[in-house]
């Protein structure tokens, strides 16, 4: 399993109700169902991902995240997960609100645009970065809202959300979860675990 998924796997508590937005081939939900007795649904639009989920026995619903999540009730889930998809959405900020409306907690992973290699690429070569985590050219990339580790943290602060955990990883998604000191510079993948702000919790 991808290392960011392994980390998320460790963060999920037994018996949680989980919604996995852009669940891909269902690897995470499948592992969570087996190891932690988690019940949940994955949302996906990629046909191959959907078929893989069905063959695995993962509940998968074909739904475009850009159409919103109005069909999910408030507080219906313990946890809403989104791995490597936030940057491809039309309004990541509204999605974050929606995730924390539906779930008490959200886990989000995305490519960190401020990773040192990306900085070198843009700063010295003068081209939009192309890397393991950002493999597309500027004209055909689905990643329309790239951001940095710091950007996301600021968004959470602006929204008065509670960041319960944050981590970074490298693009091969293997180990190296130790760049705690300079995450914005050395983290290739950013991983955040956030909860509702106090205002929201009290309401």
């Amino acid at each position: 399993m991808r290392a960011d998924l392994t980390l998320i796997h460790d963060w999920v508590h037994d018996g949680a109700r989980v919604l996995d937005l852009a669940c891909g081939d269902g690897t995470l939900l499948d592992a969570l169902a087996r190891d932690k007795d988690v019940f949940g649904y994955g949302l996906e639009i990629d046909p191959d991902g959907i078929t893989a989920c069905l063959e695995r026995g993962v509940n998968v619903i074909e739904q475009d995240l850009d159409q919103g999540l109005a069909n999910f009730d408030d507080d219906a889930y313990d946890l809403v997960i989104m791995t490597q998809a936030l940057q491809a959405l039309r309004r990541p900020d509204l999605m974050l609100d929606e995730m924390l409306r539906i779930g008490r907690e959200a886990i989000i992973t995305f490519p960190n645009f401020a990773y040192w290699r990306h900085r070198l690429y843009l700063g010295f070569k003068g081209f939009m970065p192309v890397s393991r985590t950002l493999p597309h050219a500027w004209y055909d990339t689905p990643n329309i809202h790239l951001s940095t580790f710091n950007d996301f943290e600021r968004l959470c602060l602006d929204k008065q959300l509670v960041i319960t955990d944050r981590a970074v990883g490298n693009g091969a998604h293997q180990s190296h979860w130790s760049s705690r000191l300079w995450p914005n510079l050395f983290g290739e993948i950013a991983i955040f675990r956030v909860g509702r702000g106090h205002a929201r919790q009290q309401s």
């Binding site: 649904y41 989920c53 993962v58 619903i61 074909e62 069909n71 009730d73």
Partner: peptide, 19 residues
Amino acid sequence: SQELVDALVRAGKPVSYAA
């Protein structure tokens, strides 16, 4: 179909949906 799927999800039933 989406109505049915939404209701099944609300009811917490195992469901998959392909459009």
